[in-house]
């Protein structure tokens, strides 16, 4: 399903031991045609076992900065991958009706497990061309105003709203400021909170700052195991705290950005487990699990009246920062 899954593996720095083992396995496979085949295949098997064991060990104790790198992994499934796998009859809807279409936020209507929904998500792109098209997932005011438009459509037709969050943050540019980036984000959060239909947000990679909050203010907020959600990207945090953006690793640690931290602070409701070695090593499984989690949460919310849905969401966000361990 993922074109990218067949490409060359790309290893993160801390995955070096695994890369080395995989390299030796590949070498052995290459010379495997000669004599002594029995020994080689036994060795391959041993190395494969060791590689997967090493991967498990590394991923059991990822640091916040390592998680950040996994969350940003170039092969990590993006919103468009979730869209393709989970939403049928997807019909993209474009533009904010005021100024422009902003492809950093993709949205539209479609079917999720048979039922009509509105889907909104940030897309970072995965080739130079698509990254530019989607502005690396950094939306301008038009993107948030489109999100508001789609939410009001959902409200009018009583459709649940599914949001996929993956952004380093809203785009900081002259035009974005000129056209009211702050106001656009505030209105999008406002619209999310006002919905009488259920909304569910999943942080699939990076949840960066107000640019993420704008579409992540939902009845249920979930995060993938190795995704991050931050007040400002680790680089921006480091440059604010130490005037030194190279200290991003320190910032990621100090800022408590992991799904596990956020669950502990009662900021999110649920963590969705990733396959060993991260979502990019088995995209189909993780996308399926996300679909199941969304569906389970939608079922829980389906019996509620619009008023109850609003109340549920408000109660949850009014409690933010009071229920800290």
């Amino acid at each position: 399903m993922l074109e990218r899954s067949g490409q060359m593996k790309s290893y993160l720095e801390f995955e070096d031991p695994v890369a080395e083992l995989d390299g030796r396995i590949a070498e052995l496979r290459a010379i495997g045609d000669d004599d002594d085949r029995g020994n080689i295949s036994a060795e391959i098997e041993r190395l494969e076992k060791k590689a997967s064991q090493t991967l498990v060990e590394i991923y059991q104790k990822l640091t916040p900065w390592q998680k950040t790198q996994v969350a940003r992994h170039p092969m990590r499934p993006h919103f468009v991958d979730y869209l393709k796998a989970l939403i049928s009859d997807f019909t993209p809807l474009a533009g904010d009706r005021n100024y422009a279409e902003d492809a950093a936020i993709v949205g539209g209507i479609g079917r999720f497990k048979g039922a009509s929904v509105v889907v909104i998500g940030q897309e970072k792109g995965n080739t130079t061309e698509t990254r530019l098209k989607h502005n690396f997932g950094m939306a301008r005011p038009e993107g948030y105003r489109k999100a508001v438009r789609l939410m009001s459509l959902a409200e009018r037709f009583s459709l649940p709203v599914l949001c996929f969050v993956d952004t380093a943050g809203a785009y900081p540019g002259i035009g974005a400021e000129e056209r009211g980036q702050a106001e656009a984000i505030a209105r999008s959060t406002d619209a999310s909170l006002a919905l009488g239909v259920p909304n569910i947000a999943v942080v699939i990679g990076e949840g960066g700052s107000g640019g993420a909050v704008a579409i992540a203010t939902a009845n249920r907020v979930m995060m993938l195991e190795h995704s991050i959600y931050t007040v400002a990207s680790p680089e921006a945090s480091a440059s604010i705290l130490w005037r030194d953006s190279t200290r991003a690793a320190d910032a990621a640690t100090a800022m408590k950005v992991t799904a596990q931290d956020l669950k502990r602070f009662h900021v999110i409701d649920q963590i969705i487990t990733e396959p060993t070695g991260g979502a990019h090593r088995d995209a189909a499984t993780v996308i399926g699990d996300v679909g199941d989690a969304i569906s389970a949460n939608l079922n829980e919310l389906s019996a509620m009246s619009p008023e109850e849905i609003r109340r549920d969401r408000r109660r949850k966000f009014l409690a933010m920062g009071t229920l800290v361990d």
């Binding site: 959060t189 909170l193 107000g210 203010t217 007040v231 400002a232 900021v267 408000r314 966000f317 009014l318």
Partner: peptide, 21 residues
């Protein structure tokens, strides 16, 4: 945002928005 409070600071955005509503 107050950086030293991390994500809990960020969550004051939706929280205050509820009160505006």
């Amino acid at each position: 945002a107050r950086m030293q409070e991390g994500i809990l600071s960020l969550m004051q955005m939706p929280k205050t928005t509820v009160a505006v509503q």
